[in-house]
């Protein structure tokens, strides 16, 4: 089953949380207000161009820097259905799982998928398909514990279920 399908917004290595959502907007934690400024310091067209279901692709160390959960919240509230990167910074990785933003590590996909490509992802298998080029990639699936956390719908439900 395909869980995410959309066009790709591609960025480079070390996309930090300050560019995902600049601190000048952090006094507000409303997801929609954050989404309006998502990525604007490196791509001010992103908030206007992104559509529900679109996919963000980054290079290595995606989400480095500050622990602000506002970063995955801003990406999710923009409508992005998944983030694929070569690697993720660890706090961003935790935060994304905890708030239910699907993320996949896949260096080959991160390298070969191009900006604007039409891509579909199956979370269960980690299969990433680039419909524009016809290539498929296998992302790293989550360890069982994290899959349970994701299946529970994030950390809040997970804590409540215990």
């Amino acid at each position: 089953m395909e869980n995410a399908h959309g066009h790709v917004f591609k960025y480079g290595d070390n996309i930090d949380t300050d560019v995902i959502i600049p601190a000048r907007y952090l006094a507000d934690s409303d997801p929609k207000a954050l989404a309006a400024h998502c990525m604007e310091d490196i791509d001010d067209t992103f908030p206007g161009k992104v559509h529900k279901g679109d996919i963000m692709v980054g290079g290595k160390n995606f989400g480095c820097g500050s622990s602000r959960e506002h970063a995955p919240i801003a990406i999710k509230a923009s409508g992005v259905s998944a983030v694929v990167a070569s690697s993720f910074a660890r706090i961003f990785y935790r935060n994304a799982i905890n708030i239910g933003l699907p993320i996949l590590e896949c260096p080959e996909a991160a390298e070969q998928i191009q900006d604007g490509d039409e891509v579909g992802i199956e979370f269960g298998t980690g299969i990433i398909t680039d419909f524009t080029t016809g290539k498929t990639f296998k992302g790293q699936s989550f360890p069982e514990f994290m899959q349970d956390l994701i299946d529970a719908g994030g950390l809040v439900n997970f804590v409540n279920s215990k």
Binding site: G65, S66, S67, R68, E69, P72, I91, R94, N95, N98, I99, G154, L155, V156, V159
Partner: peptide, 25 residues
């Protein structure tokens, strides 16, 4: 819930930054 929480390692503690949901839990 601040990435520079790792500072307390100076005192021989294990300390690490997390996000707000982890802080809540």
């Amino acid at each position: 819930a601040d990435s520079h929480t790792c500072t307390y390692g100076a005192l021989g503690a294990f300390s690490t930054g997390v996000g707000s949901t982890d802080m809540a839990a």
